[in-house]
């Protein structure tokens, strides 16, 4: 077979009949197997289609109308809602705030989490206690955490009193009222909440790094930092990439913490796409406009997710949204 192909020198289809065992002429459909698969998947599929896909499609339909939520859908306006949203400086500012939080999370929370995880990945007295304490903020509900910080950061409130108590009274700012620094305050609260989760993920990832590699490197004379840099961190790669993905999507869809802590204020200094959608769409009885904003948020998240899976997670998730390897 191979010789004849080489001899002719042209691309010919391989001779099927000699390629292998004959395929059965009648395809037997495995009804029982298919029924089992669909039967078990049906409830989850119904929920997914009904609560995720159908609302997305409906939102896309509503976004083409001027609709105040009462009465029938009568006033078709085409893409006007999208034009209005993409031309509104407040919405563009909201997108900017989301992207800022994505960038800050990746640049600050990531390295910090990895560093702390590396430090905690050794025999320490009280290691379990420290790990529990670090993870507790993540377990708190966002509303509870947001309300607590809102009360703590009042002008002249407990946090300012604490700073004055340790002699840093001159550093106090209007943490939540000053438009210049409120994004920083918001990022600080977000980090307090989610750093524990990142550290826990990294610690879990570090468990899969074999000790023998580090020991072998140490015998060869590598320092602690060299071991981390050349062995541990590359092997931690898949975990870091997954964490970055979760962090990115979470930052794009950020709502709860912002809503409770600042409500998007002061004067639109901390709006995010989701708070903008609730404020301008739902609260102002303009459900068509709100739906358009929701669709834009969906598309942005989808694009980020698909690009990330294609470009970054490719080697971790071969067969997902990638070319087959």
């Amino acid at each position: 077979m191979a010789i004849s192909t080489l001899a002719t020198g042209s691309a010919t289809l391989p001779d099927r009949s000699a390629a292998g065992p004959a395929r059965p002429t009648r395809r037997r459909v495995d009804w029982r197997g298919a029924a089992m698969i669909w039967g078990f998947a049906a409830p989850a599929l119904v929920v997914y289609v009904g609560f995720v896909l159908v609302p997305v499609a409906l939102a896309a339909v509503y976004s083409l109308f001027n609709w105040n939520g009462l009465g029938p859908l009568e006033r078709f306006i085409g893409l006007d809602n999208y034009v209005r949203a993409l031309g509104d400086p407040v919405f563009l500012g909201a997108i900017g705030h989301n992207l800022l939080i994505v960038a800050l999370s990746l640049l600050i929370q990531g390295p910090l989490a990895i560093g702390i995880a590396l430090l905690l990945n050794r025999r320490l007295r009280g290691r379990t206690l420290i790990r529990t304490l670090i993870f507790v903020p993540y377990v708190l509900s966002e509303v509870v955490a947001g309300l607590a910080f809102k009360l703590l950061l009042q002008p002249g409130g407990p946090f300012d009193a604490f700073l004055a108590g340790i002699g840093l009274g001159g550093v106090t700012q209007l943490w939540l009222a000053d438009g210049q620094i409120v994004m920083g305050t918001l990022f600080f609260v977000l980090s307090w909440k989610y750093l524990g989760f990142a550290i826990l993920l990294m610690l879990a990832g570090l468990q899969s790094v074999p000790d023998e590699l580090a020991e072998a490197a140490a015998i060869d004379g590598a320092s602690w930092w060299q071991i981390q840099r050349h062995i541990t961190l590359p092997l931690l790669g898949p975990t870091i990439r997954i964490w970055a993905f979760l962090s990115m999507i979470g930052s794009l869809q950020l709502f709860d913490m912002v809503w409770v802590l600042t409500g998007g204020g002061p004067v639109n200094a901390t709006t995010t796409m989701a708070t903008y959608m609730v404020q301008y769409g739902f609260q102002r009885s303009q459900l068509g406009y709100g739906s358009a904003v929701a669709v834009i948020l969906f598309v942005i998240s989808l694009v980020f997710a698909l690009l990330y899976q294609r470009l970054v997670l490719r080697r971790d998730l071969a067969g997902a949204v990638t070319r087959s390897a």
Binding site: K150, L151, Q154, P155, G156, G157, L174, L176, A177, G179, V182, T262, G265, P266, V267
Partner: peptide
């Protein structure tokens, strides 16, 4: 007005 009035809530708590 009081300091930081842009972030003060109306009815929640002593602040």
């Amino acid at each position: 007005f009081q300091e930081g009035f842009l972030a003060t809530p109306a009815q929640q708590g002593a602040g």
